[in-house]
Nucleic acid binder design. Structure first.
Length: 206
DNA sequence: TAGTATCT
DNA sequence: TATG
């Protein structure tokens, strides 16, 4: 059964990072996590924990707690500023984002083999004219994308280590999520799991 | 300044 | 940024 074409504004680039590039990226992310440890966010109001663990790098980081979703300059656990975005990711943004200002946030999501991400939209950014640029590392996942309304039809496909995914244009506010992780599908991370990096421009224009 | 990336 |  053949899938419909990707919606306009979606760009999936298989294997943007080769193995060496992925290894270098993981080293950079390890340095970020050493300074800004992964933590488990909670849902607004209910306090229900996410199944993914998160951290950020860049001047701003996306956080969620009982008070809501927001971007803030400090790690909610350590109180320290987020580390800088690694150069290789700034370079990636320059090559694929088609946006005249640098990203301000790089959200780092770690999925263990049971983690999921429910269908949602990235809409906490003022700069909705800038795309969201995503990098997959480690185990593959089943990714799902729909339209601007939660009820719009969805399609899904696998994202593998080294893939780059750009959510922009008419699809910038498309609902998307991660249905499942495929454990053991990559040897990049010794202890398994998937890391997703999403680069965002938060403020307009800059 | 009112919804939410939780969850079945 | 809980919030009524």
């Amino acid at each position: 059964m053949k899938n419909a074409p990707l919606p306009e504004g979606i760009r999936l680039i298989d294997g943007w990072f080769d193995r060496d590039g992925q290894v270098a990226l993981i080293a950079a992310i390890r340095a970020v996590v050493a300074e800004a440890p992964l933590y488990r966010p909670e849902m607004p109001r209910t306090g229900k924990p996410f199944s993914v663990r998160m951290t950020n790098c860049g001047p701003l980081g996306w956080v969620s707690d009982r008070a809501g979703y927001r971007y803030q300059p400090l790690h909610p656990v350590t109180g320290c500023p987020w580390p800088a975005i690694p150069e290789v990711l700034l370079a990636l943004w320059g090559e694929v984002a088609d946006y005249p200002h640098p990203p301000e946030a790089c959200l780092v999501n770690f999925y263990d083999e049971t983690a999921r991400m429910g269908l949602h939209r990235d809409e906490d950014e003022a700069a909705l004219d800038a795309p969201v640029v995503s990098v997959s590392l480690g185990d593959s996942c089943l990714f799902r994308i729909g339209g601007r309304e939660r009820s719009d039809p969805t399609r899904s496909f696998r994202l593998a280590s080294g893939d780059v995914f750009v959510l922009g244009g008419p699809s910038r506010l498309a609902f998307h999520g991660v249905d499942r992780i495929y454990p053991g599908s990559s040897t990049l991370l010794e202890r398994g799991g998937r890391i997703n990096l999403t680069l965002r421009r938060v403020t307009s224009p800059g």
